[in-house]
Amino acid sequence: MSFDLSCPVPFTATDTIEIGHGGGGMMTKRLVDGLFRPAFGAGPDDLNHDGAILDVGGELLAFTTDSFVVKPLFFPGGDIGSLAINGTVNDLAMCGAEPVGISVGLILEEGLPIAELQRIIGSMEAAAEAAGARIVTGDTKVVEHGKGDGLYINTSGVGRVIAPAPINPRQAAPGDMVILSGDIGRHGIAIMAVREGLGFETEIVSDCAPLIAPVKTLISAGVPLRCLRDLTRGGLATALIEIAETAGLTVRLDQKAIAISDAVRGACEILGLDPLYVANEGRFVAFVPASAAETALGIMRSFNPAAAVIGRVERRRERGEVVLDTIGGLRPLDLLSGEQLPRIC
């Protein structure tokens, strides 16, 4: 973590909350670093990972929370229910923990059809079972018609840490390999296609999935996992930038190794979006020492054949936490300001 001794920058350039504050980019970071972190007395490493690790009487527990406000509620490859369970299960998995109990907070909008709620609850149950997680407590509130998008869900999870060593960005070291668990960009494009009524020739299906099984397999095979991160909003680039920034290192990416399906690539070309920043809900990156990369890759490929080594960790470059090989040379990747907006032409 570097400290800037110059005059503090106001944590937001606007006097109201805008959509971009939730985009996971620079605006979100300013809000967390400028308001939440100091207010909650958090240290430089707190709030920087997918979950917190708590030492409870000698046993290490992982604790995480996430809220889901996706529109539409149903999309190819999942719905808000499966998303809410997988999101929290995955955050625990990224701490090297298996889920012990999950809480579900529902905020329902007046007028939501019971049949839709039943479908969503059903898929939460199925997702929890698939991940070996139990939903143990919950809460329900109803807001007036027009005050919510049908349904918002918050889930929190407690997990038992099963990894033998800490997994977080600080553990990453020069020479580590970065392995990506599959192709990227499906979830963000699938949601956008349904929400905006964009018809593509091939239906793009969200990658929404639990990640606990590959992580458990990696741990039981004895792969030393330095850092794990699931790629959610902000996509691969944002996740790697956050890790590299916390670790004080540079990640050098091989653009060609990053798998992107033709359908997602095509959609991104048309819309002017960078797939490196498009959301995922069932992909993660693993930082492992080079000596363990082959074993780790073999395991990850057994879950998804598109898994690949996409880069390596280097000592911190003068500028750029994450650099990408391009035709003309290396190019640093930066956090986006807010959300990616489709371009005009």
């Binding site: 500028r319 003309g328 290396l330 190019r331 930066d334």
Partner: peptide, 25 residues
Amino acid sequence: EGTCAAYYRYRRSEAGSAPVAEATP
């Protein structure tokens, strides 16, 4: 598509002078 946005995003610290120096890993 703005020029300043392009330079901010891809060339922030040098604003368009030299390529990124190759550092030894």
